[in-house]
């Protein structure tokens, strides 16, 4: 057992300051436990958002010693408590109060992405046949817990506040999940280019580094989407082919599509 000092940001949209709190640290404790203890002991009105305390809901995002983290999954024994531990809200979005951020923009953005549109059922009983490999391919993206830590670190949102033009890494993952969904038939490429601002991403990979679900956001979601956008809108061969054969959505799954793409090149 030991005592740790926390510097916790207290304030609201108008401004605020760091305040010091001391609390006892016990075995296996995570940052969220410490925050709750402080809340019960000496700061009853300290605002913090949380829910599952098991890394499953993505509510408790904050910056711990400057690092974007889920407070419920950050163990105190991974932090040096000889120095004060700073805890502050995520910064890409407006602060509501103390550690709570107004993330409502994210919920609005999601509505703008074209929704899931399945192909007609394969079987007579109205269901589909899907191979496990195709499920595995989108699993990674569907693990997202919407913690918005990736949005927090993306410089396009955090530093440049391009919230009108750019949907951010979380929603590029969402678009990728829909795009690679084994049953989906919707075409979102034009939106990605024109409305969702995929071009703003310059592949810094900051988002990938902070994702608590270890989703390889940049390599597995964003880059393949960028390639498809490029193929569609910037690749002269593809443009001619499309002019000839119409604006059909490329065949799925993406693996098959890559193959088809190669053979067109050979031709």
């Amino acid at each position: 057992m030991s005592t740790a000092t926390f510097k916790i940001w207290r304030g609201d949209a108008k401004g605020g300051e760091f305040r010091d709190y001391e609390t006892e640290i016990t075995d296996g404790m995570v940052v969220l436990d410490a925050i709750h203890q402080i809340q019960a002991e000496s700061a009853n009105d300290l605002a913090v958002r949380w829910n599952c305390k098991a890394g499953k809901c993505g509510s408790c995002s904050a910056e711990v010693n400057g690092m974007p983290k889920l407070m419920c999954m950050t163990r105190m024994d991974t932090i040096d408590v000889d120095k004060p531990v700073t805890v502050e809200p995520i910064k890409a979005f407006p602060t509501t109060k103390d550690l709570v951020t107004d993330v409502s923009w994210n919920f609005e953005v999601k509505k703008k992405i074209k929704k899931f549109k399945p192909r007609p059922p394969d079987a007579e009983d109205g269901t589909w046949r899907v191979a496990q490999e195709d499920v595995d391919r989108v699993q990674e993206f569907r693990k997202c817990i919407e913690c918005f830590l990736c949005q927090d670190v993306c410089h396009v949102l955090r530093d440049h506040q391009k919230t009108e033009e750019f949907i951010g890494p979380r929603f590029l993952v969402y678009a990728a999940a829909l795009d690679m969904h084994p049953l989906d038939t919707e075409d979102r490429l034009e939106d990605l280019k024109d409305k969702h601002g995929i071009g703003f991403c310059n592949i810094t990979k900051c988002c990938t580094h902070v994702c608590p679900e270890h989703i390889t956001i940049t390599d597995n979601a964003i880059i393949p989407l960028k390639e498809r956008v490029a193929d569609r809108f910037y690749d002269p061969v593809m443009r001619i082919l499309r002019a000839l054969f119409g604006k059909k959505k490329a065949a799925k799954p993406p693996a098959a599509e890559a193959g088809a793409h190669e053979s067109t090149k050979v031709e």
Binding site: F116, G126, A131, Q132, V135, R142, L178, H181, L183, D184
Partner: peptide, 17 residues
């Protein structure tokens, strides 16, 4: 099944159900 029609992705059997 309705959940699947709305986009849920479930693990599959060998015969893809």
């Amino acid at each position: 099944r309705e959940l699947e029609a709305w986009g849920a992705v479930f693990d599959r059997t060998k015969d893809q159900k």
